[in-house]
Design a binder for these strands. Structure first.
Lengths: 213, 213
DNA sequence: CTTGACAATGGACAATTGTTCACCTATATA
DNA sequence: TATATAGGTGAACAATTGTCCATTGTCAAG
């Protein structure tokens, strides 16, 4: 998608914020006033540009009817005070050694907020999300690009875990049979990799998957 | 608060749901059309009553500017200028026939809150989640029990949509080739079902999948 | 130098949309 | 019986609002 110009971004932001604050969309003349334009057509030009770039939709001829489209993702959000039931978790592209005792902000590529009850999380304290790379878990229906919610705790046999292998965090199935040492297994029948592990390398257990379509 | 009459409740419900699924408020004449009134004044009377009972507010003279007061409903957290936009969306177990004209609160089985930017949603209010039943979308990596985030809007070729088939909401792939009527397709090679559709039966487009592990 | 984008002015016009007045029919209530 | 409230028709009017025309200027790319 094409980039927005500064002015176009300003207009778009105002429209969004106006709707947020007031509960309804602005009229063309309200936008005009906000920016001090002396003609409504200044606004029209920007709206046409925004429509052409497909970040915005309108119903021709109808008042205050906008629709905003943004697949892009800027800015790291902060948690609203009153959102009690919501987990606010960092999304890690990779988790460096030392986590969870020491968070590496460099690994954080975004934040994700999900309701605890519906996702079945027990604790919100050190939960984080991990963006999946590769196809090692496709047989568990987890695909490249998915975000996996991880809860740091001991793994049981059969859990999907985030584990540190060669300094990189990967997603694997944790297998622990009675009387045997535990190991990790990739869930992809074409690459049936097995990894021996030390307990310490397991970062946590996967609790949920989130995928944008 | 005074009780609403049946008619007033119907009007209020329509206004709310029009906004919810379209993203903007209805005009007086759109309300008139929906109820088959032969005069806009019929609507005006109801609006005055609703304003007097303080369930509704309007900006005099301005088009499509409503504000609805619902002490019972979960309030949308008011957003300071730079705060995060968290989506608060109903999770529907099923969306009964007749939706969106008539919401079935019974269909709501929970609520889900996800940060807009990280999930790529465009508008918070109209969005809802749908719990998947069955295996009709397994080839699109969507499985029984998953929650799918739906955004009501027109579908493009290739979109995964929530559609009304035989009074039940199902998830299907929307196919629309130039010069041909659109149809729906189940994404399961073992059940390659095809469905003809009317535009009206498409509830919205799937934007994300959330799965608890 | 020309071309195309972006940004904006100024004015006019037409469609959408809210508002109001007069009037009608019920139904319940004091 | 009066009288208020809810619900509605019909038509006209006015304000809001979207749209379009012609024009100006800047700036970067070809």
């Amino acid at each position: 998608m094409k980039e927005l110009t500064t002015r176009q971004q300003e207009i778009l932001t105002f429209i969004e914020h106006h709707e947020w604050r007031n509960g309804y969309w602005p009229s063309i003349r309200e936008i005009q006033d906000k920016f001090g334009f002396k003609s409504t057509n200044a606004v029209m030009g920007h709206l046409r540009a925004l429509e052409k770039k497909e970040v915005l939709e309108r119903i021709p001829g109808q008042a205050r009817t906008f629709r905003i489209n943004r697949p892009d993702a800027p800015e790291i959000p902060s948690m609203p005070e009153d959102a009690t039931e919501v987990v606010d978790i960092p999304v890690m592209g990779d988790i460096a050694a030392g986590y969870p005792d020491r968070v590496e902000p460099a690994g954080e590529i975004g934040r994700l907020q999900i309701d605890i009850q519906n996702a079945g999380f027990s604790s919100r304290r050190r939960t984080f999300a991990l963006q999946v790379r590769g196809e090692s878990m496709v047989d568990a229906e987890i695909y490249d690009g998915d975000m996996v919610i991880i809860e740091p705790r001991d793994a049981k046999d059969g859990d999907i875990v985030a584990a540190l292998i060669d300094g990189e965090t990967t997603l694997k199935r944790y297998i622990k049979k009675a009387g045997e040492p535990p190991y990790l297994k990739a869930e992809n029948k074409f690459y049936p990799e097995l990894y021996p592990i030390s307990e310490l390398s397991v970062q946590g257990v996967a609790k949920a998957v989130v995928r944008s379509l």
